[in-house]
Structures are given as C-alpha cells and as structure tokens.
Amino acid sequence: MKRVLPGFGLSMGVTLTYLGVIVLLPLVALVLRGAEIGPERFWAILTAPRTLAALQLTLVAGAMATVVNAAYGLLMAWVLVRYDFPGKRVLDALMDIPFALPTAVAGLALSALFSANGWFGALLEPMGIQVVFTIWGVAIAMSFTSIPFVVRTVQPVLEDLDTQYEQAAITLGAHPFTIFRKVIWPVILPSFLVGITLSFARSLGEFGAVVFIAGNLPMKTEIASLLAVIRLEEYDYNGAAAIAMVLLVIALLLLVVSNLLQARALRYKAKP
C-alpha cells in the first residue's frame, strides 16, 4: 500500500531518535554493565539473603497494595459511573490526586501522618498498630501512589456497558449479585486485569513515597529499588546493576502482560 499521508520519515526520525537517545541508550548501558558481572556472580547477588528479602518485601507489599487498590478501584468505578450524588464531580477529580502529587510529597505526608505524633499514628499507636517502618507502611505508600489505575481503566468500560442486558435480567428476576457476576463482570474483567497489572507494576517501581515511610531495615523493610541505590552508594556497582536488571525485567514482563490484556480488552469492546 502506498502511503498517502505525509510525514512518515519525519515522525519516524523524531520518534526513533528520541527513544534511542532518551530511553534505549541508558537501558543499554545498564544491560552492558549487567553483562559484565558474569552469571555466577549475578546469581550470587540475587540469591543473597538481603536481596531475596528485599525482592520478597517488594513483591508482597506490592501485592497487598494491589489487592487494596483492586477492591477500592472497583468500588470507586462503580459508584462514579452508576450513582448520582452531591459531590460526585469532586470525588471523581480526587481520584487523580495520587498521580498529580509528587511521590516525595505523598511519602512525607504519609510518614508524618502515621508516625506516633501524626493524626493516624496517634489513633493507631494506642491500639498497638505500628505502620511506619513496617511492611504496612510500605504497602500503604505503594497503594496511595497507584490508586488511579484500576479506577481509570474500569470506569470507561463500565460507562460504555449497555444496561439493557441488566434490565432484562432484572425483569427475569435475577439476584443483583448474579447479574453482576454473569453480565457485568465478564465485560469489565479484561480492563480490570489491565488496571491491576499497571497498579502492581507501579507499586513495584515506587520509590519516593516508600523511602520516607519504610525506614531501611535490611531484611525487613528495605524495598528492592532502595537496595539498588544503597548498593550504588556502597560503590557496589555490580550489586546495583544486578538488582536493577531484575527490576527492569519484571517491569518489562508486566508491560508485555498489560499490553496483551489491553489488546484483549479492546477486542471485547469492539464486539457489538
């Protein structure tokens, strides 16, 4: 097919130059550095107890945050699409705050809020619940910074959903929960999964918010990206590069998964 529209060469040139210089080149630097380490040393770094503990904490706290955000996101998407009530617009706008707010600010606010003299900490401390410097703090910070993902992916699908099937089901006397499960759930599931994947990926990569609230107790509350930075500060470039490589691979995998899910979600939507 002959290209009718102009600008193919120009846009290709700009895109590739930019991606090459800004995105690819630095990633190549990391991969080259990682390749110098050698498989044995690489494996030793990754299986060191502290690295494993950091990766485990990151994954577990990320999963905790994602579960919270999945439930909260579904609730918010549903409420924002299906109900009308005063203050709905404001509530809708509030959903984007965690994206607009710098993560360091979020971290500062959350850590002070949950510390013994903060508003939340003063309530929780007497009950014997400590959030700051525990995995809960890490999960809360991750959760806050990735709130919008599930809401914003499920919301449009729910908006587009034709209600006539629901109406039909109601007329037939189906239980609301059955309607949700049989009629609504299958349609929103793909986007819901996309949202969860994105939320999880963001949680794993979150740094600014987490470092304020987590403390950095090795083996307990040290996230993987912080460990990479600490290794860097200890002159341990191999250690930093190896951990960074692992996080990069996980991020790329999640990106591929979310793109595949997205393709599926689009196909769902395209069906009449």
């Binding site: 995105v23 990569g205 930075v229 790329l252």
Partner: peptide, 16 residues
C-alpha cells in the same frame, strides 16, 4: 517502557 520502569532504575541507567 518508561511508564513501567521504576524512575530509580532510570536514574541508575543514566549514571551508568
């Protein structure tokens, strides 16, 4: 890619 890669990783890449 930059959307899913942690900014920290980006910083380390630039340092390297």
């Amino acid at each position: 890619i930059p959307f899913s890669v942690s900014p920290i990783i980006a910083g380390i890449c630039y340092l390297l």
